[in-house]
Amino acid sequence: MDIIIYGSGCARCRALAKAVETALQEMSLTANVKKVSDFKEMMAAGILQTPALSLDGKVVSSGRIPDANELRLWLTSKHG
C-alpha cells in the first residue's frame, strides 16, 4: 500500500503523519509512507488544502486530520 502525506511542514501536517504511523503500528500493517511538501506535486494531485492524505493514489482527506477510527477504517478497506 502506498500512503502519501501532503503538507508543508506545519504542525497539523506532522500530526497527520503521526496519526497515520500510529494507526499502522496498531494494526501491524506495513506500508510505503511518503511525505510530500512540494507544492507542484500537490497541484498535480489536485489538493486544495493541507494536510492531505492519499492512499494508493486516491486522496481520502484534505484540510483536516482524520480521527483514529476513520484512519483504521480506510486502512482496513485498502488492505482487506
Binding site: Y6, S8, F39, M42, G46, L48, T50, A52, G63
Partner: peptide, 15 residues
C-alpha cells in the same frame, strides 16, 4: 479556511 492552505488553494484554483 486556514492560512496555511493558501498556497495549495491558490495553485489548485489557478491550475
Amino acid at each position: 479556511f486556514c492560512s496555511c492552505s493558501s498556497i495549495p488553494l491558490f495553485l489548485g484554483f489557478t491550475a
